[in-house]
Design a protein around this nucleic acid. Structure first.
Lengths: 206, 206
DNA sequence: CGTTAGTTTGAGGCAGATCAACTTTGGTGG
DNA sequence: CCACCAAAGTTGATCTGCCTCAAACTAACG
């Protein structure tokens, strides 16, 4: 795996800790390094002038981030924010260059990662146009909670990820809970029936 | 530039011609090659089960496509369709492998291309959520027509690119034409005042 | 010129955003 | 351990952008 191959470079790298809501980098800044998540959860957010927040990507243990801007050679197009207490390895530009020059296998691995990310982004782009908010919210609940079960996802985070609002997320969750498809525990929740959540007949689109 | 570096590999590659609306590859197929546009215009489309078409990317002279699926090692996630008569070089999987193994500079170049594409996709994703259809249509008109002026863009193509409908595109274009910001010539149109088109006060969002 | 693909215009409806007021949760410190 | 309070969640009522459906029109090409 990618992370394994990267290990030798991490030995000599800086490690930093971030608390929830702390920013690792901000849109517009020049990329100076790559980041590797050692523990915790990082969210990549786009924030528009009007203040609308869009939750673009999640990074968990062993994921890298900051790679897009590094290779595009453009300023960051979004903000990286800790979603929970996180430890991050910071890989310097010099180390990155060394990797690129002398480790084509790692480069190819990175290529695969970014290709998958582009696929996901375009899939979501299309989904925003042909799926109802209700459907997107249900898919996001399943995706986020099954992939990162330890995290207590807020309604706002689900809303920003699904492209909706926290009020609408609340309403969908209330319905799902009443139908016994999820179980609410305080602010947290549990997925009870993945299939029914995803195949729920959405009156908005049959 | 990328295209220049790729030239040696193209000499021995197959060349094919596609008519407007002809498909180069379809979603779900296994990637067998990379494609390089020699002339014409290619559109990458996602088509949902309900039939909704989303226009993801445009490829003009000297752009490659098919690279995302090739490196992600997944089936194509979208359809590549000729938007006008086009000549395409087809670079075989074997040649691709050879490039990856022995030409890290080309690989890094590809990395940059795909990083920029991911940035654009995520920018558009966020735009769908915080900009009105009206704004997105005006931006798309400017982007598509200024970047590819020779192409007579249909209302449907603009709609699929902006995430809207052809009726709404028609209405926006009628307004812009009445205000003297674009000039309609039959089915084609000309951009007259980029700044005013983009800074148009959208009553929907100020 | 006939035919098809593309465009225009109108009328109607609704998903879900927005605004607002209230309740609950869970961490903090006295 | 309890009281407090900021952060998060709930619920209701309203409003609208623009999608959808429908029907008539026109460009462009063989």
């Amino acid at each position: 795996m990618f992370y394994q191959k990267l290990l030798p470079f991490i030995q000599s790298s800086t490690k930093r800790t971030y608390k929830r809501s702390q920013s690792i980098y901000m849109e517009g800044e020049e990329p100076q390094s790559l980041y590797l998540v050692k523990s915790g959860l990082i969210g990549l957010y786009h924030i528009s002038e009007s203040g609308k927040e869009t939750f673009l990507r999640v990074f968990a243990k062993d994921s890298i981030f900051g790679h897009r801007s590094y290779f595009a050679q453009t300023p960051y197009h979004a903000n990286a924010i800790a979603l929970s207490e996180s430890e991050i390895h910071i890989i310097s530009k010099e180390q990155c260059n060394e990797i690129c020059e002398n480790h084509p296998d790692l480069l190819k691995e990175l290529m695969k990662i970014i290709s998958l990310e582009l696929g996901e982004a375009e899939q979501r782009l299309a989904g925003l146009l042909d799926k109802s908010a209700n459907t997107r919210i249900r898919e996001s609940l399943v995706f986020l909670k099954l992939k990162y079960p330890q995290k207590v996802w807020t309604r706002k985070e689900v809303a920003d990820f699904s492209g909706s609002t926290l009020e609408t997320v609340t309403r969908v969750m209330t319905t799902l809970s009443n139908d016994g498809l999820i179980q609410k525990n305080g602010r947290d929740f549990k997925i009870l029936d993945v299939d029914k959540i995803l195949h729920y007949i959405d009156s908005a689109q049959g």
